[in-house]
Design a binder for these strands. Structure first.
Length: 599
RNA sequence: GGCCCGGUAGUUCAAUGGAUAGAAUAGGAGUUUCCUAAACUCUAGAUACAAGUUCGAUUCUUGUCCGGGCUACCA
């Protein structure tokens, strides 16, 4: 149990005995004391002032006295400044904590809570190679699932592959017209890039044809409809839906190339899924919902045969759920998929990692399922994240203005390689070890960069400035870990810390400020995970892990571990170092980032 | 037009309604007989604007200005 959650009941208890009044623990504000004041944790007193009709100073003194008197093993001192009661926690408390947890690899993880949560993420489109925006999605989804798992949830990762539709036909028709039978093998191109190139080619050709038609005197809107390549694409979609064998074959062949390419990238970035769903298989079942909704009177049919839901009472619009020709739209498919996922996994909560441009869509999806009284409707949760933009604006696959994931990773690997060689600290590494190290650093930098920001905020990435390896970055944290490991390699095994009053003298008169800061910070790790889990926000972990690395580096510069003032101090610091390394390692793992032993 | 987000140092990001708004980078000045200088220390620099609620507002409310998204019988 965290120190804060131990302190709060003690305070409410004292308040009750002192003033005969009940206070909710949730109304107490207890936070770490600002560095410029004495103390470890601070209670804000203002909220009681009115209710108890006493001055903050008097209140602070009375509460402080009472706390120390009844809990001398926890509180050793206090001071009141303005409306703040600063409490000092006993060194022995911190030492006991360190002794109990320095080697605890489960620190921060919670026992199973019998809740199942399903995380749908990645969800690629089979004619677009993975770009930086998709990476944010992949890293977020993976990390949130991992954080929830650490918090005791059973987690299931899934993926819906957008493998059908008019856009897919675009790359198919471009391949037919321009490829002359070329394949990824014949051109030595990664499959997803190969297909993506034809998607871009389609758009180039389409633009050209439209311009020609306009030059020939046609209106723009008409030209866009009449361009031969577009008409061919629409024809192809009809043929696909009718199951025309050679279209289906081509579709399978090209999707196959894409999946081969995706597999390589997924493996590299560590994305994995318990189950893949394919839209080509889920786009029909949603129609059952339409009948069901009509029967329940949740949906209504217009004269032309199209089916709608009226959400104006909820402040939204009327929304189409089935076209007049009876074919399903995006939301119809999602209704079907939600049901299918529930049938498969019986989840308590279903998280969708989808960009914020779909906020409205997801709101509608949840609302419809609620109106249909689906048991899983309330558990639907949209993890909405902001787009990754370039300084010039949004990335567009169609226009080829994207930061390609594979290229980005390669670039980061090169930076890692150059820097490592320049520093020359691992000259004895084998080729395999070097490759693994470059990969660890490169992906660490990339993942940290994308995860350190609050998901819901959009972020701008400037390709001109490659991702830094200094400061608030993955490599900084990794470096700190390597540094600690280097110390730990020098000393095998540590002695137990002396506890109690007698032992306190042996460790030194008291903990030094940086030692204590580090322990306090380590103690907060489970709280950070908890916050990250409830908020579905990995940046909480990233920020935490960075702060503790930074703190350790200050400590490291200021105090020697191996040449400590005494044997006891040395072992105290070894434990402090070991626990810091463990917490860094497990925190980074929650972000999907490995930490090296040396770098 | 309507609806939904966002606006914090030059830049990229923090801050359960609480103390003098934190970091990182870029800028300036330093640190290596001693555990990894991918580090550390010091320095300078910001809440778009205006009201309101409050003992206290970056945080809550309203308005203005700016940016983005959605508002498809596309997905």
């Amino acid at each position: 149990m965290s120190i804060v959650s131990q302190i709060k009941p003690l305070i409410t208890k004292e308040l009750k005995t002192l003033y005969q009044q009940e206070f909710e623990e949730s109304n107490l504000t207890v936070s770490t004391t600002k560095p410029e004041f004495d103390g470890d944790y601070t209670l804000v007193l203002f909220s009681f002032v009115k209710q108890l009709k006493k001055s903050p100073e008097q209140l602070g003194n009375e509460i402080g006295d009472a706390l120390i008197k009844s809990n001398p093993e926890i509180f050793t001192a206090y001071n009141v400044i303005k409306g703040f009661l600063n409490l000092t926690i006993a060194d022995s408390y911190w030492l006991n904590f360190l002794q109990a947890n320095y080697n605890n690899h489960q620190f921060g993880s919670k026992p199973a809570n019998a809740q199942k949560v399903i995380v749908e993420y990645s969800s690629p489109n089979t004619n677009k190679p993975i770009h930086l925006g998709h990476l944010r999605n992949n890293f977020l989804g993976w990390s949130v699932a991992q954080i929830l798992k650490e918090s005791g949830y059973e987690t299931v990762k899934t993926c819906i592959v957008n493998d059908r539709g008019i856009h897919i036909c675009k790359s198919m028709i471009a391949w037919q017209q321009f490829a002359n039978g070329a394949t990824p093998q014949s051109t030595n191109t990664k499959g997803d890039h190969f297909v993506g190139d034809y998607y871009v080619k389609f758009n180039d050709e389409y633009k050209k044809q439209v311009e020609e038609l306009i030059k020939g005197g046609m209106k723009k809107e008409d030209a866009e409809k009449e361009a031969p390549i577009m008409k061919g694409t629409q024809q192809m979609l009809v043929e696909w839906e009718n199951g025309k064998p050679d279209v289906i074959d081509l579709w399978k062949k090209m999707n196959g190339w894409v999946y081969e390419g995706f597999d390589v990238t997924y493996k590299r970035i560590g994305s994995d899924f318990a189950k893949m769903y394919y839209e080509s298989e889920t786009y029909l079942p949603g129609k059952k919902f339409v009948e069901e909704g009509l029967k329940q009177g949740v949906f209504f049919k217009k004269e032309d045969g199209s089916v709608w839901i009226d959400l104006t009472a909820e402040g939204l619009d009327e929304k189409l759920v089935l076209r007049k020709d009876g074919t399903s739209v995006y939301i119809t498919q999602d209704l079907g998929l939600a049901q299918e996922k529930y049938d498969d996994f019986k989840y308590d909560e279903s998280i969708y990692v989808i960009a914020d441009e779909q906020n409205y869509h997801m709101k509608v999806l949840k609302l419809i399922l609620q109106k249909l009284s689906k048991p899983y409707a309330d558990g639907i949760n949209h993890l909405s994240y902001g787009m990754v933009e370039l300084p010039s604006g949004r990335m567009k696959s169609r226009e080829g203005t994207v930061v390609d994931a594979d290229e980005m990773i390669e670039e980061m690997v090169n930076v890692a390689k150059n820097k490592t060689e320049e520093l020359g600290k691992v000259k004895d590494f084998s080729q395999d070890e070097l490759i693994e190290l470059y990969d660890t650093i490169a992906l660490g930098a990339l993942k940290f960069f994308l995860l350190r920001v609050d998901p819901k905020k959009r972020m701008i990435f400037n390709p001109e400035e490659s991702i830094d390896f200094h400061g608030f970055t993955g490599p900084f944290v990794q470096y700190t870990h390597a540094r600690i490991k280097s110390i730990l390699r020098k000393e095998q095994g540590t002695k137990d810390l002396p506890t109690g009053q007698a032992g306190k003298a042996q460790v030194g008169n008291s903990l030094l400020q940086l030692e204590k800061d580090l322990i306090i910070s380590l103690e907060q790790y489970p709280t950070a995970i908890e916050q990250a889990a409830t908020e579905h926000n990995p940046s909480v972990v990233a920020i935490y892990v960075f702060n503790i690395a930074k703190l350790f580096n200050s400590f490291y510069t200021e105090h020697s571990v191996m040449n400590a003032e005494s044997e006891e101090k040395k072992h105290l610091r070894l434990k402090l170092s070991e626990m810091t390394a463990n917490v860094i390692s497990s925190g980074m793992k929650l972000l999907g980032i490995r930490v090296p032993e040396r770098m």
